[in-house]
Design a protein around this nucleic acid. Structure first.
Lengths: 140, 140
DNA sequence: TCTAAAAAGTCTTTTAAAGAAACTAAAAAA
DNA sequence: TTTTTTAGTTTCTTTAAAAGACTTTTTAGA
């Protein structure tokens, strides 16, 4: 919810507090954790003044598709027919954006059954072994 | 983590328990909540036997881009240069899939600054008012 | 310039959630 | 048929989250 508000454009403690109806200490803890984890950072309101605003880091900005995807999921499965409370539009076209979805390199949309999980560059040896075992056996 | 495991193909209580290293009562609670919220459902292992497997509902399957997006975020910002432990490949091509990202109707990739939040069909009146106030004023 | 209100937290107490370990009943395997 | 595994539940302890009062610094207004 904090992140959603940051993407809405909010950046101060009290703005979050008003909007989220959350205890101040909890808000404070969560903001600290978001900073510790490199998702938000504090920037002085203006040089030389000890008052700060919370802003997204590059890592934080990269969470945008996830926050939007979660909203879209809620629009579909929680709000459903009553419609979305908020819609995201492309500034250039003024049109709603596409739903977040998985795509292959060639642009095809992918469902869970269309993809496979494979051990990556830093896979643990036991994961590689498990994967190879699964490849040889047909059952599971 | 439970959902990630479900997308990996796990479906039984003990599979989750082994893989997640979580207290049994906590796992039980969370599975119940996932069912209550229509993300998982219980299906009998075989007709007439009181043993069940946890399976995704349509709503649950729709969370796939979010789970994958979260993995991709971690691959980039947590694992970084050491590389991903798991990669997702398109079965048809055998190639890694695209990163989850926002796209406009015309296919353009969108950053947070390229989009705008607007009140939707079920927006609360105060959100509409807030939005209109923000449209007329240039500041914030 | 002084005052009051707002902003941004912190501190203390209460409540809820998580974790560990033992217990139970049914189903599968030996 | 006996033993193991599965899929939980129960009870107790520990840890974390939430609520609400309190503090200090900033800022806007009279």
């Amino acid at each position: 919810m904090i992140l959603r508000d940051v993407f809405y454009g909010l950046s101060s403690f009290s703005q979050f507090q008003k909007n989220l109806d959350i205890a101040r200490n909890v808000l404070s803890d969560r903001l600290d954790k978001l900073i510790e984890n490199g998702i938000l950072e504090l920037q002085p309101v203006r040089p030389g003044v000890a008052r700060y605003r919370y802003h997204l880091t590059d890592a934080g900005r990269d969470l945008f598709p996830l926050v939007v995807g979660l909203m879209q999921w809620g629009d579909k499965w929680v709000f459903g027919s009553e419609g979305a409370p908020v819609v995201l539009v492309d500034r250039e076209q003024g049109a709603p954006i596409q739903p977040v979805a998985l795509q292959a390199r060639n642009g095809r949309y992918l469902q869970p059954r269309d993809v496979e999980f494979e051990p990556g560059p830093s896979a643990a040896p036991e994961l590689v072994a498990w994967y190879q075992r699964r490849q040889s056996n047909a059952q599971d």
